[in-house]
Design a protein around this nucleic acid. Sequence first.
DNA 1: CTGAAAGCGCTAACAA
DNA 2: TTGTTAGCGCTTTCAG
Lengths: 334, 334
Amino acid sequence: MSTATVSRALAGKSSVSPATKARVEAAAKQLGYVVSAAASSLASGRTRNVGVVMPYLDSWFFMAVLKGAQRTLADAGYDVTLYHLAPADGLEIDSESAQRRSRLFDEFLRRQRVDALIAVNLELDDHERTALGDLSRPVVGLGGPLPGLHTLSLDDTGVARLATDHLLALGHRSIAHITGDPDFERDFQMPATRRAGYEASLVEAGIEPDPLLVRHANFTIEGGYDATLRLLGDPRVHPTAIFAASDEMAIGALLAARDLGRTVPGDLSIVGIDGHDLADFFGLTTIDQFPEVQGQQVAQIVIDELTGQLQDAVDEDLPYELVVRRSTSRLREA
Amino acid sequence: MSTATVSRALAGKSSVSPATKARVEAAAKQLGYVVSAAASSLASGRTRNVGVVMPYLDSWFFMAVLKGAQRTLADAGYDVTLYHLAPADGLEIDSESAQRRSRLFDEFLRRQRVDALIAVNLELDDHERTALGDLSRPVVGLGGPLPGLHTLSLDDTGVARLATDHLLALGHRSIAHITGDPDFERDFQMPATRRAGYEASLVEAGIEPDPLLVRHANFTIEGGYDATLRLLGDPRVHPTAIFAASDEMAIGALLAARDLGRTVPGDLSIVGIDGHDLADFFGLTTIDQFPEVQGQQVAQIVIDELTGQLQDAVDEDLPYELVVRRSTSRLREA
DNA sequence: CTGAAAGCGCTAACAA
DNA sequence: TTGTTAGCGCTTTCAG
């Protein structure tokens, strides 16, 4: 039997008789033979490897996404090569992280080691956009609109409105918002978008948004805690509810409220965004965005594209869902 | 100029004149030329890619390790391929996760796509041990003794003794311990080892270990919380201190104590293990084991081995350090 | 449906 | 120090 037939049998091509295919597979299993990745890649141009670029490797949310993507890709027979790319903050032009960033685009990705790339929450400058284009490999973005690429993104306005409307429906009128610093984190202006959704909901309910009710934090529990201390300590405002732009900040808010002697939800209702593992433990009402499923979905799009099952451009909105727990309740009559 | 010279120049071989080397590099940069990974691998047998096998992708500790390893490897020019391998629990023989596990060893790793493997907290059965041996590629284990392989591990007994001795030195005599289930998690008997260290310290201090003071949890905040409720609610015991086998469980203990109206450290001292990001926020005394540095160290060993700078077997103990914060204090006189 | 043969783009001997 | 050349182990036309 020729090497060509073996190759075709193992690749699952249709033009092999079931009988020989079975024989090849049996022999391969018995010998423990596995195709050499390098030789196969060199001959075919396909690597069976997908790159995943993540902005953070120490955040619960992104790791949930990674977990979902890795599993889906591995089950389809793909390796996953992980790249870590700290978000550009526009300030440190030639910092270590900026060097790593350009090295990724100019060196690592050019080695032609990946069949496709998953870019999570990645904003690209012109140079990077060109570099990705030159790869002529599919790139799928998760979390923000990447012009010209397949993209899955969350409707941040809708999510923020749902959270705010939930609090409004419970009778709250003085609703504070804890969000990220719009200058620092460049995640597609996600903080700004969520804030806009929050304000739009208020306006529709006939409430004038009060800038004093908006506080900035860095998307961590600590940040949410500090912001909440500042908020609740400010004598000029008297919020009865807080909408935090992430569950971690919401958990920080919960702990801060408790430390200040406010009961949740008695004195203060709190809602977050994400669907964090700990939300259930803390009884936190949240808008779940199913990050692990996001990872699976984006991986599936990559697989479909690589196997030619995908024709049209993808530009979908991700699902989200209000999960009510015990951190929100009807406004207590004064 | 021949392709061979270019190859040598770009590989940084010594046998190239500085002048031509410079010319090659300039030309390469100008053309945006980067060596094709597949062709290079096929010809040389080297992939410049290191596999990392992790038991969990959703735990803070392992992600810190991954972050450190990924950065060190990327800075040395290596790609990182991530494999997720849920720990074998001995029960579900033919579960999905068992299938994924055998597929990793029998298919993915045989593709010869990695120059070396980092195995984090991975216990191997005989088949797997053989499979790794057949790769004839360096394997470095982090977190447990892998016979015959380079290994970095934490002295769990020493860590547990340090934590316990810290509490003893503060005057505590009734010290509880929250640890993992020794049957369920097969992390090299880590929970059992830590418990042994705890008991050894007590015995040395002339205290009889009380099984009622030991509670099992699953290494999460929730688990630590529940275990602490059970512990503090048990009328038969009156601990004045808790040593938890992880910071997450310690944080759970802290929250549980607070919910039961016990002040920390007034009524109860609490110490954990890990050096979690949140330890500082919660004022948690901990034994820091510097997980991110562990990742860097294990990556560096791999790099040294691959570049031939490593001769002897490595079997080192990892550093750890007591970090005292405000969750532990001297025993209050009754 | 199967076989023969021509590379894929590099690296590493070996020569020069 | 550089050039020449023979593969590395597959996949894929092209024939049969």
